[in-house]
Design a protein around this nucleic acid. Sequence first.
DNA 1: ATTACTAAAAGACGAGTAA
DNA 2: TTTACTCGTCTTTTAGTAA
Lengths: 221, 221
Amino acid sequence: MVMAEDLQCLKSIALLGGLSGQVRVSSQSLGKELDISPQTASRRLISLEAQGLITRALRADGQYIVITGAGGDTLSKEYADYRSIFEETAGHTILKGIVIDGLGEGRYYVSIPGYHRQFVGRLGFEPFPGTLNIRLSPASIGIRKKLEGHRWIPIEGFTADERTFGGAKCLPCKIGEFPCAIVVPGRSHYPEDIIEIISPAELRKELNLRETDSVTVEVAI
Amino acid sequence: MVMAEDLQCLKSIALLGGLSGQVRVSSQSLGKELDISPQTASRRLISLEAQGLITRALRADGQYIVITGAGGDTLSKEYADYRSIFEETAGHTILKGIVIDGLGEGRYYVSIPGYHRQFVGRLGFEPFPGTLNIRLSPASIGIRKKLEGHRWIPIEGFTADERTFGGAKCLPCKIGEFPCAIVVPGRSHYPEDIIEIISPAELRKELNLRETDSVTVEVAI
DNA sequence: ATTACTAAAAGACGAGTAA
DNA sequence: TTTACTCGTCTTTTAGTAA
């Protein structure tokens, strides 16, 4: 991983136009920009070059710098991070994670008529009796939080056979081409890194998913 | 200015959802994420809190962190930097700089009939006899480089009175509500931090500009 | 498991300097 | 003016430890 200071330095060069072509930079000018000494600035440039992030052409009056492909990639990744912090990806949000084994609870709940009826009526599909459990990647946990503000479909709680069944909420989504929904129980303190998916298809079979396989869930905005 | 490492740390918290609400972070998990020791991670969090960029609620099992408004602003500035590196601002590009005194050359050249005729014909306005010279800010120098790929309007060179006059190119733009054009001489090695503006209006007078006043030039894409 | 201290080790910084 | 070295200083890091 590129060190934070090097990245900061690379960004400055990019702002000066280093991605579009040669930029004249001196240790002093760069130092002023970043509030560091010219010596340190010089060292940073040497370091960036050693990492293959920039190429330098030294002249008497300074150095002409171009950001390499690798350097551009580095910046681009950083940019993607910021985009995922501030924007929802145009039109859809992506959650990534790995398949984990559920506790078999999903299978039980989905088959209870009081829930089943609501799933069919409000989601528009007949859920396969079972859920796909996904452990989200750290970054996806953050993205998932933003989904809280979306239009979740409520599943009402009810009483049957002298037992109370709690409410829940669903968010329609897709895995590959399969329509799905994220289901979150209403009250209980649900772990934030895990989501449960229901779908009319048996996703594990259809997508040939095993434990620890990675999956991508797409939520339309 | 926020230190590069602190910023990196703040970004990680944002990716985990710290902008939308509380995030549970431990020194260890953060350390793993950033490839630093838990001790250092702990120190970073303390530092971020001291700078008012996050608030922390310590519990036995870790700490619950929220990014403050100031923290969000910091990230937002960074995001803006990356946007200006990778995107052209939607619909228009902004160059900023300060007014500097020209050498009076502009006045001379604009009044030469061979040029004057072309300006009128190709730019659609009769230029005031004089140019506004602007020294671009460091960041704008980078942005200006991207403009190289735009559709510049050529001004042909010619010979008159046994003298050759070199070609140039123009890029229509606006300062405030005044239509203008950036003029760049064809051959000569023109300093990259300076642009020359022509306009039908006497901009210095109309906009009450004096030396070192800052100006914003808007180029439509 | 945590956080966060102290103290030793490592590493970065910038002044000075040469080219 | 530059770059980039050396070197002494100071900061940062991490191990160890306590709570």
